[in-house]
């Protein structure tokens, strides 16, 4: 373990940040369950549930109060993560990032309460869904920045290809995924998930008739899926072709490529099963995991760019 690493915090902090990331991914899955089962208003009050800390977990309450419990746990983890990071981390920007994560989870909790109190207004519910993804990106970033691989210093690579650089390509992919998740949230919270009832065609055509805003939203999500898939394939093929020996680039790129195949299947199943709970919820959670993977890839691509290629360091620094 290098001196640099010891100065910047402990392996414990990294593992804790990783654990918080996993719990956050699970929280997004549980949040997806709430919308998939339409249980968002099964508990009409907030912050208590039917005036209690722990109501009977029956019917829709199981999903809504379960979501609140997991959210409270993630909030608690984030408080510890923030305190731990601020107490031990030497890098000011990492400390600031942990404080940002804390404020994000706090805002997220308040938005969750407001969406219940104001009976699921689209704007608040969508913001709640999008902030969930943002918070997930923050904790994933914290896990990455506190990792030994990052703190020991990333290997440097020289991008030899003409055109768009790898960091920009990865950044573009992450932005496309994030925009697609916003569209997905809009689709869920405007009840547009079955506005186009068939797949892969739309009302038997390639371009559907835009008779309602819901059809436009749904179609925009499908169009977004095509763009995201394209950028992921582009990113993966570029890394497979030019940076295959860099495990810390190739692994997340391969993971992202495999996940997007799963995600397209889940999206199709969501329509074909008329929004059955399992594929619909898995579609939400997989979207978050793809975003998290893309964030890791993008940050590494940026961290490794503009330096000389040192293959020896690349193999020993994966997380």
């Amino acid at each position: 373990m290098s001196r640099h690493f010891l100065e910047g915090g402990s392996i414990g902090l990294h593992r804790f940040a990783l654990f918080t990331s996993f719990c956050t991914a699970f929280l997004i899955f549980v949040g997806g369950l709430v919308t998939s089962t339409e249980s968002g208003l099964a508990v009409p009050d907030w912050p208590l549930s039917y005036g209690m800390f722990f109501p009977p977990m029956v019917g829709g309450i199981f999903y809504e109060h379960g979501h609140r419990m997991v959210a409270a746990f993630v909030g608690f983890l984030t408080v510890i993560l923030t305190i731990w990071t601020c107490a031990t981390e030497k890098r000011a920007w990492v400390r600031r990032l942990s404080v940002a994560a804390f404020f994000a989870v706090l805002t997220q909790g308040i938005l969750g309460g407001l969406t219940v109190i104001y009976l699921l207004p689209t704007a608040i519910s969508m913001t709640h869904a999008c902030l969930a993804q943002t918070f997930f990106c923050l904790v994933v970033s914290l896990a990455l920045f506190t990792s030994p691989g990052w703190k020991n210093g990333l290997p440097s690579v020289t991008d030899k290809s003409a055109g768009i650089g790898l960091p920009a390509l990865c950044g573009l992919t992450t932005a496309a995924i994030y925009l697609q998740l916003i569209l997905g949230a809009l689709m869920r919270h405007t009840d547009s998930g079955l506005a186009i009832p068939d797949f892969p065609l739309a009302f038997g055509r390639i371009i559907p008739p835009f008779n309602s805003p819901n059809i436009a939203i749904h179609f925009a999500h499908r169009l977004g899926a095509t763009i995201v898939t394209g950028t992921i394939i582009w990113t993966f093929s570029r890394i497979a072709r030019e940076f295959k020996s860099y495990r810390m680039l190739f692994r997340p790129a391969l993971t992202m490529f495999a996940l997007v195949v799963v995600q397209l299947t889940l999206g199709a199943l969501t329509v074909l099963t008329a929004k059955s709970v399992v594929p619909t919820t898995a579609h939400v959670a997989t979207g978050a995991v793809i975003l998290g993977t893309s964030v890791v890839l993008t940050l590494r691509a940026f961290g490794m760019s503009g330096h000389e290629w040192k293959p020896g360091r690349a193999r020993q620094s994966g997380i």
């Binding site: 912050p47 305190i83 107490a87 804390f102 404020f103 309460g113």
Partner: peptide, 27 residues
């Protein structure tokens, strides 16, 4: 304990209390 740690802890406590004081009914 560094000053900033005290500041972060106090902020967390105050904001958490503020968040918990929200809510309302529609009866």
């Amino acid at each position: 304990m560094p000053k900033r740690l005290v500041f972060v802890c106090s902020s967390i406590l105050v904001l958490a209390l503020a968040a918990a004081c929200g809510g309302g009914g529609n009866d």
